[in-house]
Design a protein around this nucleic acid. Structure first.
Lengths: 201, 201, 201, 201
DNA sequence: TATGAATGAGGATTCATTCAT
DNA sequence: CATGAATGAATCCTCATTCAT
C-alpha cells in the first residue's frame, strides 16, 4: 500500500477498520489482522491513530459520515415524499445487508450498535462517538416526520422528537434482530414498522 | 466458596457470569476475574462449564429463566390487565436499571442483546441461545396482545405476531439506547412507545 | 469398578496405566483420563499409588512381568531350540503390534523404551525401573545364546554378554523403528537381524 | 537478544530448542523456559514458529542438518576407509555425549529417537520429520557399506539396504541404552557392534 | 515517515494433586 | 476405604503496543 496521500492512507485504514469491526466485533479483530487487511505495517496504523481505541472512535465517525452519505442522503435525493424517503432508507440498508448475507451467509448488524454495546462500559470515547453518530441521523428523521405531518392531515400531531427517537430505535432494533436471527428480512419488517410509526403514532 | 451442592455452585457461577458479562461484555471479562468474583478456583469453573463460551451459553439460558421469573411473571402476577402488565414489565426493567445506575453510574443494557451482538458472528451457540431466550419471552407479549385485542374493541385487529415482534424489538431498542446514552429514562420512554404499539398499531 | 480385592484394583489400575502410557506417552495421558479409563475415582488412584510418577514406576514393573510371562516364557515353552525361541519372541511381539496396528492404525513401540526415553532425564525412578525391566530380560537372551553356542559348533565363541546386549538393543531398535515408521514389519526385519546376531557374531 | 538478522534469530531459537528438547524432552520444556533460554521474548518465538509443535518440527530438521555436517561429514572427511569412517561416526557421537556426561552427569540420548518416540502418536508432523532425518543419514551408511564390500572380498555380499538399516538401528539402540543406563560407554560398545555388522553380516 | 522486529502483560485452558465427607 | 469436589501452579498462546533503523 504505497503511493497514497496521508488522507488517503488514513481513510483506507478507517475503511478497513469499519469493515472488520463491523463484521467481527472490536475484540474479535486484532491489530495484526487489521494492518494486514489494510496492507500496511502495524506500526504505520499506530502512527496514524495511536491506539486501537482511538482508531475505533475515528472509525465510528467515518462510518457515520458514510452512512449519512450513502444511506440517508441518497434516500433523500431519490424522492421528496417523506414516506418514500423513509422506505428508501430501509431499502438502502436492506440491500447492503442482503448483499453481504448472500456473499457471507451472515448478518452483521448495525456498525454503531455493535461497537457501542460492546464498548459502552469500557470506553467512554467510543460510546460518545456512537451517540454522536446517532445524533447526526436525527435531522433526517426529523425532516421526514415534519414533512409527513405537514402534508398529511394528522389528527393530533405528536411531539416530533418522540417519533424521531422511535424511528431511530426501530432501525437499531431491526438490525439487531437481523444479526441475531441471521435474517436480512428482519430489516424489511423493520421498514413496515417504521412506516407504521410515522403514520399511526 | 465451599459447602455448596453441585447445583448451587453451578448456579452461583452462572449468576456471577451473568453479572459480569452483562456489565463488562464477554471479552471485557476474563476467566480469572470471573472465578475470583465467584470466589471459586478457575479450574472449578472449567470443571463445571468446560469453556468460556459454554459458560456464556449457560449464562444466557439462566438469565432468560431469571428474566421470565422476575420480569415477566411478576409483571403478570401483579395485574390481569394487559396494558398494566406491559407497563409492569417495563417498570421491573426500569427499576433494575435505575438501581444499578444509582450505584454504578452506568447503564448496562440488555444482557441478551449485549452478548448476542458481541458474539453473533463468532459463536453460533451463543447466538442461538440468545435467540431462544427471546423466543421464550414471546408468549408473554402474545398474551398481552391477545388479551388487549379481546377486551378493547379494536378497529382492525392486526396480526398479533407482528405486534409481538414490535414489542420485543422495542424493549431491545430502549435498553440499547439507555446503555449508549447512559440514561435509564430511555427505558421509561420505551414503555410509552410499547403502549403506543399495543394501542395504535 | 467395585467388588475388587485390593490387589485386583491395583493391578487393574496398572494395566490401564500400561495401556495408556504405552499408547500415548507419559505426558500424553493425564490422571483424569487414566482414572476414567480405569473406571475409578481419581482419588482412588492416588490412594493406591501416591503420584503419577510412582504409578509409572509400578506400571513399568508390571509391564516387565507381563512381558516376561507373555513374550519370553511362552516363547520358551513353545520350543527348546534356541533359534526357534528367539524367533518366537519376535513372533509374539510382532503379533501384538500387528493386531494393534490393524485396530488402531498405529505402532506404539516399546513400553519400556517409550517411557524410559521420555522420563530418563526427569525421573530417576522411572529410568531405573526401565533398566531393571531390561535386565530381567537378559536371562532369556543369555539362555538362548548359551544354548546356541553349545549345540552348534561355533568357530570362536564370543562373549555371551555382548550378544545378549546386541539382542536387547536390536529388539529396542526395531520397536523404535516400527513406531516411527508406523510399520509393524520393522519387527519382522528385526527378527531376521536378531537371528543374524545370534549366528554370525 | 537483539541485533540479529532474521535467519540468525531463527537459527538461534532452533539451536536453543534442540538443546532443551534433547536434554529434557518435549513435554519437559515449556515455552517460557525455552524463550528465556534463547534470551528472547516468548512472543518472538511464536512469531517465528507459530506453535511449539512447529518449532519442534523445525528443530528436528535443523538437528538433522547439524548431524549431517558435524557427525557424518566430518567423519567422512577424516578418512576414505569405510571402516574408519564408521568408527569416526561413533567417535564423534561418543565425544559429544562423553563431554555432556562429564559436565552434566547425564546421557541425553538421540535427539531424533527421543522426540520421535515421545511424539510419534500425537504429532504426525514430528514423526515424519524424524523419519526424514533418519533417511537423510542413509546415504552415509550406504556409501560405507558399498565401499566396504568393494574393497574387501566379501564372501556373499548382502543386500546393502539391510545393512544400512541395521547400522541405523544400531546407532539408535546404543544411544537409547546410553541414556537409560547413563553410560556413554554404551556408544563405544555400539561402535564395536556396528563394525561387526559391517563385517560379518 | 515507514517498517521489520521485538516485547510485557495477559488470556483461555489444563494438570497433578488434595480435601472433606 | 472411597469419592465428589476443589485447587495452585503451570502451559500454550495472543494481544496491543513500542523500538531501532
Amino acid at each position: 500500500m504505497s503511493f497514497m496521500s496521508k488522507e488517503e492512507t488514513s481513510n483506507h485504514i478507517l475503511d478497513t477498520a469499519i469493515d472488520l469491526f463491523w463484521r467481527a466485533s472490536y475484540h474479535g479483530v486484532n491489530m495484526n489482522e487489521l494492518s494486514r487487511a489494510a496492507d500496511l505495517n502495524k506500526a504505520t496504523v499506530y502512527q496514524y491513530f495511536g491506539s486501537k481505541e482511538k482508531l475505533a472512535v475515528a472509525a465510528v465517525e467515518r462510518a457515520a459520515e458514510r452512512t449519512r452519505n450513502f444511506v440517508f442522503d441518497t434516500a433523500f435525493e431519490r424522492s421528496e415524499n417523506p414516506v418514500d424517503r423513509l422506505k428508501n432508507i430501509y431499502k438502502n440498508v436492506y440491500q447492503t445487508h442482503k448483499a453481504i448475507y448472500e456473499k457471507e451467509a451472515n448478518c452483521i448488524g448495525c456498525p454503531f450498535v455493535n461497537i457501542g454495546v460492546e464498548l459502552a462500559t469500557s470506553s467512554d470515547d467510543v460510546r460518545t462517538a456512537v451517540n454522536k453518530a446517532f445524533e447526526s441521523f436525527h435531522p433526517y428523521y426529523k425532516r421526514i416526520t415534519d414533512d409527513y405531518q405537514t402534508v398529511s392531515v394528522v389528527e393530533e400531531p405528536t411531539n416530533a422528537t418522540e417519533i424521531v427517537s422511535a424511528l431511530l430505535a426501530n432501525m437499531n432494533a431491526c438490525l439487531v434482530a437481523s444479526k441475531l436471527e441471521r435474517r436480512p428480512e428482519a430489516i424489511l419488517e423493520g421498514s413496515h414498522r417504521a412506516i407504521n410509526i410515522l403514520k399511526h403514532w
